[in-house]
């Protein structure tokens, strides 16, 4: 086993790329985590389906985002909570904290996008697909997974510092994520045709603004959280 250990480069973008590759490789190696979360989505969709049986467009819309919300919390929770203390120390010596946070946020966004796609396919499979404007819905899904990923990743970093982190994760993140969730339900209601109006563009830019603000807060605050 004479593999050369390559040190991560010092450029922050290169660090992000490096960490992202590491996250994906790790996920690929231990497939149980990601298959667990995918199974979680499938079984939730199925439970919801057999409890409701007839799912109208309005209920479909709400259920989609509620399933997304709970699956996202479960998927993102592990990002900081499950990192061991030694590995944290290792990162601390080598990497810029912003690179660590951003790489986790990007990785989680991709993961949540995948989860959202799966939830959509599964829910459409059992309950029909009410979406009329696919582009709008895809945009809502993209902004939604980014917003969820940003909030949950940051809260997971906070919760990881405390002792009973899994309870804290829900308590801390749900109230913070509600504005995003409300905007998302509203936006996708537009794309399903439940709501009509010309202010879709306003809501999209508002959602993007909230996402950006949360990223900015995260980037400013994370270095303080990191320093132990």
């Amino acid at each position: 086993m004479n593999r050369r250990v390559s040190l991560p480069p010092m450029n922050i973008f290169a660090q992000i790329f490096y960490l992202l590759r590491k996250e994906i490789t790790l996920e690929w190696r231990q497939k149980f985590a990601i298959s667990g979360i995918l199974l979680y989505v499938l079984s939730t969709v199925f439970i919801v389906y057999i409890s409701f049986q007839n799912i109208g467009p309005q209920v479909w819309n709400v259920l989609f985002w509620v399933i997304m919300l709970f699956a996202s919390v479960n998927a993102v929770m592990k990002s900081f909570v499950q990192e061991s203390g030694y590995r944290q120390l290792y990162y601390f010596q080598l990497l810029h904290p912003i690179a660590i946070l951003l790489s986790k946020m990007i990785y989680n966004s991709l993961l949540l996008l995948l989860l959202g796609g799966l939830t959509f396919v599964a829910l459409s499979f059992v309950a029909g697909n009410p979406v009329q404007e696919a582009g709008n819905f895809a945009l809502a899904l993209f902004l939604g997974s980014t917003g969820f990923s940003i909030t949950f990743t940051f809260v997971s970093a906070i919760a990881a510092k405390a002792d009973n982190s899994s309870t804290l994760m829900a308590i801390l993140s749900f109230p913070v994520v509600i504005p995003i969730l409300l905007l998302l339900v509203n936006l996708s209601a537009h794309s399903i045709g439940l709501l009509s109006g010309s202010d879709v563009g306003d809501k999209i830019s508002l959602l993007a603004a909230v996402d950006l603000m949360l990223v900015a807060m995260g980037l400013v605050l994370f270095p303080f959280l990191w320093r132990d």
Binding site: I158, K161, D163, P179, M217, F224, L225
Partner: peptide
């Protein structure tokens, strides 16, 4: 609740300060 879940006072202060700013922004 977050404040209550720390033993170490310094850690408690730091993490809850971070959360307070984050919460205010939202």
């Amino acid at each position: 609740v977050l404040r209550g879940s720390f033993e170490d006072p310094e850690k408690k202060s730091k993490v809850s300060a971070v959360y307070n700013i984050f919460a205010f922004a939202s």
